[in-house]
Simulated assay, not measured.
Amino acid sequence: MTSASEAPEPDIAVVPHDPAWSGRYDAERATILGATGALFVAIEHVGSTAVPGLLAKPVIDIMAAVERLAEASAALDRLGDLGYRLAPTGMRNRLFLRKRAPGDACAFHLHIVEHATWHERNERLLRDHLRAYPEDARAYGALKQRLAREHARDGLAYTKGKTAIIQSIVDRARDALGLPRVDVWED
């Protein structure tokens, strides 16, 4: 499967948490696993839609782990059949795929990483921290809402505007686990 040009991303909209997101993740997880067999050794719902009560863009982020990233290449055609398109991000040691169904307000992002890094993935640490600290989730949600208004058509500015708060939260989570601090803005 190759990267495909798609319709432009819709304006950024941050909306109240939808309890249906969890069910959408469960259904998509089952679809992915049905298409890829035993390829993934771990798969989880990450991102803001995985945090009950958190304001979020209606994008369900899924993180899946393989033993070696090269193994995932064999499944790209099968994931393409499900509507996933490889999106270049410049991030090392990760495959990033997007899926958007026509007329569906909700999209899916699939992050494929190596299992050796699973326990220290910033996306998982951020999700777990926001679930455990509702005051941080509220502050993060308020920032996202403001940034969505200010940068509705500029996804990069929206994302970069969140970097400082994400870095602060991830640093605290990594400190608590005895993990070294890393820059959350992956190159």
Rank of each mutant, 00 (worst) to 15 (best):
R174G: 11
A101D: 08
V113Y: 00
L177S: 05
R24D: 13
T89S: 14
E120W: 10
A27S: 12
D136T: 07
V113F: 06
P58G: 10
A70L: 03
L76T: 02
R153E: 06
D171G: 04
T163K: 11
R29Y: 02
A101Y: 06
P180M: 04
W118D: 11
K57I: 04
F108M: 15
T2Y: 12
H109S: 08
R138A: 09
T159S: 15
S5P: 03
I112W: 05
F108W: 11
D154L: 10
I112Y: 09
R174L: 10
S5R: 11
A56C: 12
A87H: 07
R78P: 12
R92T: 14
T117G: 04
E135A: 12
A65F: 14
A176Q: 08
A164Y: 00
S22P: 09
Q167S: 07
V15A: 00
E120Y: 10
T2V: 13
D136G: 10
A30C: 08
I112H: 03
F40I: 13
I12Q: 00
F40V: 02
I60Q: 05
G80H: 00
T36M: 09
S73C: 12
F96W: 00
T49N: 04
L55I: 05
Y25I: 12
S168L: 08
P10V: 02
R85Y: 04
I165N: 07
G83V: 11
T163Q: 06
R100P: 11
Y158A: 00
L130V: 00
N93H: 14
A105P: 14
P52F: 08
E114L: 08
L95E: 00
L147H: 05
T163E: 04
A164K: 00
V15S: 01
I112S: 11
V46P: 10
D128S: 09
